[in-house]
Amino acid sequence: MTEQEALALATHRHYKGGLYRVIGVARHSETEEAMIVYEHLWPHERGLWVRPAAMFNETLADGTPRFKPLDIPL
């Protein structure tokens, strides 16, 4: 997938540059912790990942968001 193709699907850009699409929010079966389910689109092989919502939405020490939401036209 090219970067342009990934941009058409992506909802977020990782601080290291990768493009991702959030699938939804799930709950951990034991702790009920909110988990973000997301798909890696570019630059490597596509794949599904899960990360605690608090970590997905956190801001790094330098003020950069870990995953920056992209402007999605409606």
Rank of each mutant, 00 (worst) to 15 (best):
Val22Phe: 01
Trp49Pro: 00
Glu3Ile: 10
Leu9Asn: 03
Arg46Ser: 08
Glu5Arg: 05
Met1Leu: 08
Ile36Met: 08
Glu32Lys: 13
Gly63Thr: 04
Leu41Tyr: 08
Ala6Trp: 00
Thr31Asp: 02
Val37Gly: 01
Pro52His: 12
Glu33Gly: 01
Leu19Asp: 10
Ala61Thr: 13
His40Trp: 12
Pro43Leu: 04
Gly24Val: 01
Pro43Glu: 05
Gly63Pro: 01
Arg27Asp: 12
Leu9Asp: 05
Gly63Cys: 06
Ile36Lys: 05
Ser29Phe: 12
Asp62Pro: 11
Ala54Tyr: 04
Tyr20Gly: 02
Ile23Thr: 11
Thr11Leu: 10
His44Met: 06
Thr59Lys: 06
Leu7Gln: 09
Glu30Asn: 05
Arg21Leu: 13
Trp42Gly: 06
Leu19Gly: 06
Arg46Asn: 02
Thr64Glu: 13
Leu19His: 08
Gly18Cys: 06
Phe67Trp: 14
Ala8Ser: 10
Tyr38Asp: 04
Leu7Asp: 02
Arg46Ala: 04
Leu9Gly: 01
Thr64Cys: 07
Tyr20Met: 14
Thr64Tyr: 09
Glu32Phe: 14
Tyr20Ala: 14
His40Pro: 02
His40Val: 05
Gly17Trp: 13
Asn57Ser: 11
Glu30Arg: 14
Met35Ser: 02
Met55Gln: 15
Asp62Arg: 07
Ala53Thr: 11
Leu41Ile: 00
Leu48Asp: 04
Met35His: 05
Gly63Asn: 03
Val25His: 10
Met35Gln: 12
Pro52Ile: 06
Met1Ala: 06
Ala34His: 07
Thr2Ala: 03
Val50Ala: 10
Val22Ser: 02
Leu19Cys: 12
Leu41Ala: 04
Thr31Arg: 08
Glu3Cys: 09
Val50Asp: 13
Pro73Glu: 07
Val22Thr: 11
Phe67Val: 10
Met35Arg: 08
Trp49Val: 00
Glu32Pro: 04
Val22Leu: 15
Glu30Gln: 13
Phe67Ser: 11
Tyr15Glu: 10
Trp49His: 13
Pro65Asn: 07
Glu30Thr: 11
Thr59Gln: 08
Glu3Thr: 03
Ile72Arg: 15
Ile23Cys: 08
Ile72Glu: 06
Val37His: 04
Gly17Phe: 10
Trp42Thr: 03
Gly24Arg: 11
Gly63Lys: 03
Ala53Ile: 07
Glu58Val: 00
Tyr15Gln: 08
Glu39Met: 02
Tyr38Gln: 06
Glu33Cys: 07
Arg46Ile: 05
Glu58Pro: 00
Arg13Cys: 12
Glu33Thr: 15
Ala10Leu: 08
Leu70Lys: 12
Gly17Arg: 14
Thr2Lys: 13
Pro43Tyr: 09
Met55Asp: 15
Glu3Asp: 04
Ala34Pro: 02
Pro69Ala: 14
Val22Ala: 05
Pro52Glu: 13
Leu70Val: 13
